[in-house]
């Protein structure tokens, strides 16, 4: 099986993006949290393998939500 599944194409997979260090600082400052307060995501999660995230990175997730249209969520790797 040469072909690989591309999870980002799937409707149920929201958009995952990697935050830069600066954005990370801003996020922590805005909500007055530390990295360990964030929900987590596995490094090997199929939806973020293409981002090559390292431990300590923060992933920004833009969900489509039924109640709010769009919802932003953050997960630490």
């Amino acid at each position: 099986m040469a072909k690989n599944i591309d999870p980002s194409k799937h409707d149920l997979v929201p958009k995952h993006t990697l935050l830069s260090d600066k954005e990370k600082e801003e996020l922590f400052a805005r909500y007055r949290i530390t990295f360990f307060d964030l929900p987590r995501i596995e490094k090997t999660d199929p939806a973020i393998t293409h981002l090559n995230a390292k431990s300590g990175d923060v992933i920004k997730i833009i969900r489509k939500s039924k109640t709010a249209g769009e919802a932003v969520y953050y997960r630490g790797v």
Binding site: P7, L12, V13, H16, P46, A47, I48
Partner: peptide, 14 residues
């Protein structure tokens, strides 16, 4: 299975 194939966010949706 969804978590394994499509990731945790998709699993949450399911």
């Amino acid at each position: 299975e969804v978590q394994k194939v499509l990731g945790i966010e998709a699993a949450r949706e399911v």
